[in-house]
């Protein structure tokens, strides 16, 4: 092959993000008649999720997949997706992640400044809450409870809602719930299925309080040096991969909810009144976001509220 594109992925191949990369690889290799080889290094063989921005930006590897929030150190605006209950429906998420939208546009542009170019966004679904013995329907249910979070903004949200946040890695999640190290968990619903979390938690509260997005980035210098024909092939395959995973996302989540129910979990959707209570306690998180991101963040937030 004339061009080799190596992609680092934290999750295993069997995850839906892995399958999405596989689809991209197959299309690129077929349409380029083998001129471009795509090698996927899954399960963090080369880099962990949090190392991807630096690894790709510095050119140590051509491409990588990372959770969008991993770029928060460079681009604080990415935390817009973790602002509580801002994107709580598929319709709003789709408007936000449309290429060039007032939310995604400035983010893609800012990431460009880190030495990486965004190829496509991979949908991962909404964040939900896990608990035992009843739903976490309102902030009252979180008072004084220990909560597993992933990332600073969700931690701030937990604090604002009266809980005590603890960062626990994906691999220790199962035992942390089983042993009661934490009382409440936050995760994507597909994680409930892949890790069989129904064995240790009995209730899902469908809060969708944050939208989890992954992005596939390539090193900008590497990308700019590619022949135009190769760029076109890769960009086309990336677009197809992005649309495919976005369209499938609700079906993937639907299957995960069905599996959870089948395995005895109760699935609770908060009422409009309860959601209003959640939103009321979330204000400090929004304030912190505005303070960190200034006018650009303000414009983005206003656009998002208009969706």
């Amino acid at each position: 092959a004339e061009t080799t594109m190596r992609i680092s992925l934290q999750l295993p191949m069997k995850s839906h993000l892995g399958q999405n990369l596989k689809m991209f690889k197959d299309e690129v290799e077929a349409t380029s008649n083998g001129d471009i080889a795509v090698e996927i290094y899954d399960s963090a063989q080369l880099y962990k999720d949090k190392e991807v921005p630096q690894a790709v930006g510095s050119g140590a590897i051509e491409a990588g997949v990372a959770s969008l929030t991993r770029f928060v150190g460079d681009v604080p605006m990415v935390d817009i997706f973790y602002q509580p209950f801002l994107f709580d429906s598929e319709e709003k998420v789709r408007k936000a992640v449309a290429p060039g939208s007032p939310v995604r546009g400035p983010i893609d542009e800012a990431i460009q400044g880190t030495g990486s170019t965004v190829l496509w966004w991979q949908a991962y679904g909404g964040a939900i809450m896990l608990s035992n013995g009843g739903p976490i329907s309102s902030p009252e249910a979180m008072q004084g409870k220990k909560v597993r979070v992933f990332g600073k903004t969700l931690g701030d949200f937990t604090t604002a809602a009266g809980g005590a946040p603890t960062i626990i890695s994906g691999s220790e999640q199962y035992l942390a719930y089983q042993r009661g190290t934490v009382d409440i968990g936050m995760t994507g619903v597909s994680g409930v299925q892949s890790r069989s979390l129904w064995e240790v938690m009995d209730t899902i509260t469908v809060t969708n309080h944050a939208d989890i997005e992954f992005i596939v980035v390539v090193n900008t210098d590497w990308w700019n040096a590619l022949p135009q024909a190769h760029k076109d092939i890769i960009a086309a395959a990336a677009r197809n991969a992005e649309n495919s995973v976005r369209d499938e996302m609700s079906a993937i989540e639907g299957r995960a909810y069905a599996a959870a129910k089948e395995n005895g979990m109760t699935i609770y959707t908060p009422t409009a009144d309860e959601l209003a209570q959640w939103q009321a306690v979330s204000q400090p998180v929004y304030d912190a976001f505005l303070e960190k991101t200034g006018d650009a963040g303000k414009a983005m937030l206003e656009a998002a509220r208009g969706f």
């Binding site: 930006g57 991993r70 150190g73 460079d74 600073k152």
Partner: peptide, 14 residues
């Protein structure tokens, strides 16, 4: 590179 870009860790202490 991190020093020049004023990159932060994005963790709790940031």
């Amino acid at each position: 590179d991190s020093f020049e870009r004023q990159r932060t860790t994005g963790t709790m202490l940031d």
